[in-house]
């Protein structure tokens, strides 16, 4: 390890110097983030092992083990279909709609709600090891993906039982899921930093996600009606994350607009995540 450390004081003599300094800071931050991520990727055995241990620990004393994740998903899905099935709709179609909606929504809720307290949960590791921060991000991402895997198994069974035939459109849904997976580490990083700087956000975000379920077309269907649902559908970013997975299977169409919006949101979140990781990764140890 080698290094000269100093407290640089940027004094902007004019606007150009200020812009140059800002650009240099951003480039340095991006380099730092890339360094952290590449180190974490080389240590993939660490976060894979820890994520598997996490899942095992959560269900170690139970009879069903991680299968409880599948039971939870099916039970909630059944309850929503039983309670909210609109009059006149066919039960099978609505079941498929809710099955996919809940799958994506629960995944998004889990990664956002849990990531706010990520660095606090990893405090002993952060204060005692030199592991890159992105290791903790990937540990949580993999944990959430494993948990979602059980729900996906339940979802596929429900889709087949509801009469949705396997066809080429499912590949677009698979691409939608893949896109969500790509955005996952960035989302976790951004909310983890939010939680480190603003501890109250753990409860604010938790409450917002609980309320957000009712403002997102998880179990209600938007058919072009006016009112709150119109705005909740169009101006809610979560809508598009749901639609890229749901629309191809439910209607057989390719939701280009939803894919485009999801792509732009994901890129923006990745940009913020890289800047936060590069700029503040060494400060986190003093914040938790």
């Amino acid at each position: 390890m080698k290094g000269d450390f100093g407290c640089p004081i940027a004094i902007g003599y004019d606007a150009i110097q200020q812009k140059t300094a800002t650009l240099e800071t951003m480039i340095a931050a991006l380099n730092g983030a890339v360094d952290d991520i590449s180190k974490a990727m080389r240590l993939h055995r660490v976060w894979v092992a820890l994520a598997r241990e996490d899942i095992g620990d959560q269900h170690r004393r139970t009879t069903l083990g991680p299968l409880w994740l599948l039971v939870n998903y099916v039970a909630l899905m059944g309850t929503f279909v039983f309670v909210f099935q609109p009059a006149g709709n066919d039960a099978a179609g609505y079941s498929a709609y809710v099955a996919i909606g809940l799958l994506v929504w629960f995944y998004l809720t889990e990664i956002i709600s849990l990531s706010v307290s990520l660095f606090q949960r990893e405090e002993s590791f952060i204060e005692g090891t030199t592991l890159p921060l992105f290791v903790y991000v990937m540990r949580m991402a993999l944990q959430s993906i494993i948990r979602a895997g059980y729900a996906i198994a339940g979802c596929i069974v429900i889709l087949l039982l509801s009469g949705s035939a396997l066809n080429a459109a499912w590949l677009w849904s698979l691409a939608g899921l893949f896109m969500i997976l790509l955005a996952t580490p960035a989302v976790i990083t951004v909310f983890a930093f939010l939680g480190a700087f603003f501890p109250d956000s753990e409860f604010i975000v938790g409450n917002m996600m609980r309320v957000g379920m009712f403002f997102t077309p998880v179990f209600w269907v938007y058919n072009g009606q006016d009112g709150v649902q119109k705005y909740a559908y169009h101006w809610n970013p979560f809508t598009y994350f749901l639609e890229i997975v749901r629309v191809p299977i439910i209607s057989g169409e390719l939701p280009m607009h939803a894919f485009a919006v999801t792509g732009i949101i994901s890129l923006a979140v990745w940009a913020i995540a890289l800047l936060l990781l590069g700029r503040y990764r060494k400060q986190v140890v003093f914040l938790i």
């Binding site: 080698k2 290094g3 000269d4 450390f5 100093g6 952060i126 005692g128 030199t130 140890v285």
Partner: peptide, 22 residues
């Protein structure tokens, strides 16, 4: 160990470092 980044000065360490803190 490299957990805290110094604010000033210089540090040069040659060798593989391991630590037992807690």
């Amino acid at each position: 160990y490299g957990i805290y980044e110094p604010s000033g000065g210089s540090i040069a360490i040659e060798g593989k470092v391991d630590a037992l803190f807690n």
